[in-house]
């Protein structure tokens, strides 16, 4: 790659940083209207729903990887296991599935 590549990296770094930094610095110490605060408090749970579905179904060409993985993750999480156990347990179950049926 030539010099253009480094200019592109610089540009990508700047435009990636802007949406991360402006709200955190600009909103510091400012009280937002209560309705806005309430919507913002809803965001984390809504984001999780959107990040999981439908992308989890398409992690592999074989859709069953995503389906079984999602079911396993929800099942392990519902037992009250902490996050790292949910991650490792789901990987273990999919590894077994992949070795036998993949």
């Amino acid at each position: 790659m030539g010099a253009w590549f480094w200019w592109m990296i610089l540009g990508m770094a700047i435009v990636t940083y802007i949406p991360r930094a402006i709200p955190l610095t600009f909103l510091e110490g400012r009280e937002l209207p209560e309705a806005v605060q309430n919507v913002l408090r809803n965001i984390p749970y809504a984001v999780l729903g959107a990040l999981i579905f439908p992308a989890v179904l398409f992690i592999q060409d074989n859709i069953w990887f995503g389906v079984i993985g999602a079911i396993a993750a929800f099942a392990i999480a519902f037992t009250g296991a902490n996050v790292i156990l949910v991650v490792l347990g789901t990987i273990a179950i999919l590894s077994i599935y992949g070795l036998w049926f993949g």
């Binding site: 995503g66 993985g69 999480a77 996050v83 273990a92 992949g98």
Partner: peptide, 17 residues
């Protein structure tokens, strides 16, 4: 293949509690 589930499993693990 099995590790490609990791980030999604994490999202589930954060959401369910």
């Amino acid at each position: 293949a099995s590790m490609s589930i990791a980030l999604y499993a994490m999202f589930v693990g954060l959401l369910v509690p």
